[in-house]
Amino acid sequence: MGAWYWWTLLGMALVTYIPRAIPLTFLEGKELPPVVSGVLRNIPFAVLGALIFPAILYVQEGNLLFGFIGTVVAFTLAILFSNVMVVVLGTIGVLAVYSLIF
């Protein structure tokens, strides 16, 4: 890769950092209207829904069953234990066994 790679990298770094930093630094100490802060408080749960679905079904290209089993196991573990580590390691464990067998 030539010098252009490093310029591209600089551009990528800037456009990634700006959306992270501006709201955290410039909204400091400002009171937002209640409706806006209500919507902002909703975002974590909405974004989790959008991040999970439908991408979780497609973690293995061309193998929907793999993603489906992972989804069922992850939700079951999350309902039973509500501990993130148990959910992550448990799901990996079950899918590792599945991949070994099939």
Binding site: F45, L48, G49, I56, A74, V84, T91
Partner: peptide, 30 residues
Amino acid sequence: SIALYAMFVGLLVPSMRGNRKVVMLALIAA
């Protein structure tokens, strides 16, 4: 390859329990 998604599920589900607003937010966005 499932690790990140399993983590998202592990974070979301406990917040859903007994909170209809959270359930609605996640389901509608999904």
